[in-house]
Simulated assay, not measured.
Amino acid sequence: MKIIKQALPALFLATCASVSGCAQVAPWERGNLAKPHMALDPYPLQSAFRAHIYGSREAASGSGSAEGGGCGCY
């Protein structure tokens, strides 16, 4: 019984490692993974624009051109 309790964590780790989700992707299936909606940031231009607006409104973009006053005004 003691051996089973000691072997159980090792068996659990081996099972987790064997079903980890790594898989071979065929070349003709890679196009599906390269679609824009599969990206971490599917709209990079919109995200950059929003970050610029946020930085301007919060006056968080550092020393430079005219930033907002931090009050949410333009």
Rank of each mutant, 00 (worst) to 15 (best):
S47L: 02
P9C: 09
G64T: 11
S20G: 11
A10R: 04
P42H: 03
A26S: 15
G21H: 01
D41Y: 09
P44R: 00
H37L: 05
G21N: 03
A17R: 05
A60N: 11
Y54H: 14
E58T: 14
V19A: 09
S18V: 07
A66V: 14
R50K: 14
Q6N: 12
S61T: 02
A48M: 12
S20Q: 06
M1D: 09
L40A: 14
E29F: 01
H52I: 02
C16P: 00
F12P: 00
C73M: 07
A60K: 15
L33W: 11
C73T: 12
I53Q: 14
M1E: 07
W28G: 03
V19W: 07
C16H: 03
K2T: 10
S61W: 07
K5W: 07
C16R: 07
L33M: 15
V19F: 14
K2M: 09
M38Q: 14
I53K: 11
L11Y: 05
I53N: 08
W28R: 11
N32Q: 14
V19Q: 10
Y54G: 08
H37D: 14
S18Y: 04
I4G: 02
T15V: 11
L33C: 06
Y74G: 14
V19N: 08
H37P: 00
G70R: 01
A7K: 12
S56F: 01
W28Q: 15
A48Y: 04
S18R: 03
G68N: 01
L11V: 13
I4S: 12
G70S: 04
S63E: 08
G64E: 02
S47G: 06
A60W: 02
A34N: 09
S18T: 10
V19H: 05
Q24D: 09
E29V: 02
S61R: 14
S20I: 01
G31H: 06
G69Q: 07
Y74K: 01
K35E: 13
P42C: 05
P27C: 03
V25Y: 03
G70F: 00
H52Y: 13
M1S: 13
G70D: 03
D41S: 12
N32C: 06
G31C: 02
L45Y: 11
G72V: 00
G62R: 03
C73N: 13
L8E: 08
G31F: 06
E29W: 04
A66N: 12
C16L: 15
A23L: 06
A59N: 15
E67P: 08
F12V: 15
S47V: 06
E29P: 00
G68T: 02
S20L: 06
A66W: 06
A48I: 05
A51T: 09
S61F: 09
G55E: 00
Q24P: 00
G72T: 01
G31M: 04
P9G: 04
A14C: 10
A48T: 04
E67Q: 12
R30T: 06
C71F: 04
A34E: 13
P9Y: 10
K2F: 09
A17P: 03
W28I: 08
L45S: 13
S20W: 06
A7E: 10
